[in-house]
Simulated scan of single mutants.
Amino acid sequence: MRLISAVLRVPVSMVAAAALLVAVPAAAADPVIAGAARATYDPFSGAAVAVALTVSVDLEGEATGILRIRPADNGPYALEGEGPSLAFILKSDAGSAAASGSLVIPVDSPRASMRFEVFVPAGQYAQAGLRAVSLEAQLFDAAGAPVSGPSRFIAEIDVAARAQANIAGASGVWGSQGSLAFIDFGELDSHETATAALQVRATTDVVITAWSDHLGRMIHVDHPQSAAEPGFSIAYRFSLDGVSSALTGPMILNRAPAPSLDGISYPILITLDDANGLYAGTYLDTLNIEVTAR
């Protein structure tokens, strides 16, 4: 009886093993993501930016399937770092896009490579520094069952340290490469004051440096060689954000502009000295203001 029992046990075990082998499908390889996973975003350029990536898949015997890409752990569609986050959209070359849930890309052959991108729309403010998001890509068969594990990867956006300035109350526009504005006093009167504003927007704190070509004096444009003589120049005081200077040397201020696309406006006051005894003519000085990101 023991011998018969042993003989019967072997074929039963083999049948069970064969059934298990038939029931388990071949596992697909996890998706492989390649590409430069970082791009640079400039909030003030008015341009969108994208991190372009390629994902390669191998369905291992499945004819077709679906690739799903989404933020890891069902996280938000946001690149996060220090300060405000940046919203993004997942886009594929197949025309699909997602700002929530998953980006769904059809896989029409067992082995395929597909392009997609982490797209950051323009018009968003962010402070200087890295923003990152963890994403995951996973393969599913045509019926929606997973056939691979999720592959995780990091996409990053680098927000550079940038500063722009503009003189309001004079001619001029936003600029980071330098701009020219004019403040016209008209007919000079003693102790006359002109007002303007320095508008600054930046992705970080800034250093504001102001200096005068003629050390705080407007000189007669037809007699510049006589500027040191009485009657051919007029001194003035320059005030920026409540700090006053005769501009006999550079004036340096450290400021933290409002973290927004609009920035902040710092008041400017320019007050003339005594205008009595000046010769007729036009008087001019160039006041330089440099705003640099720290």
Results as ranks from 00 to 15, higher is better:
Ile69Gly: 01
Ala27Cys: 11
Gly46Asp: 11
Ser265Arg: 00
Gly231Gln: 14
Val104Ala: 07
Met251Gly: 03
Ser226Asn: 15
Ala128Asp: 05
Ala87Cys: 13
Ala163Arg: 00
Val133Asp: 02
Phe153Tyr: 10
Tyr266Ala: 02
Pro267Val: 02
Thr195Arg: 02
Ala126Pro: 04
Ile33Asn: 01
Ala126Gln: 05
Asp108Gly: 12
Ser190Trp: 10
Thr204Asn: 15
Gln225Tyr: 11
Leu3Gly: 05
Pro110Ile: 02
Asp30Pro: 01
Ala78Tyr: 08
Ala256Phe: 13
Leu139Lys: 03
Asp189Thr: 15
Gly65Thr: 08
Ala165Trp: 01
Val200His: 00
Pro150Asn: 10
Leu215Arg: 10
Ser179Asn: 12
Val55His: 00
Val200Asn: 00
Val12Tyr: 13
Asp285Lys: 03
Ala194Glu: 11
Val147Leu: 09
Gly123Tyr: 07
Ile33Glu: 04
Tyr279Asn: 14
Met114Cys: 06
Arg9Gly: 04
Pro71Tyr: 03
Ser5Glu: 15
Gly75Ile: 08
Ala27Pro: 05
Phe88Met: 11
Thr40Ala: 11
Asp184Ala: 09
Ala165Phe: 02
Thr292Pro: 00
Gly281Ala: 10
Phe44Ile: 01
Tyr283Met: 09
Met14Cys: 14
Gly149Ala: 12
Ile69Lys: 02
Gln177Ser: 10
Ser179Ala: 14
Arg9Pro: 03
Arg115Pro: 04
Val15His: 12
Pro250Leu: 02
Gln127Pro: 03
Ala160Glu: 15
Val243Cys: 01
Ile208Thr: 08
Gln138Lys: 11
Gln177Met: 06
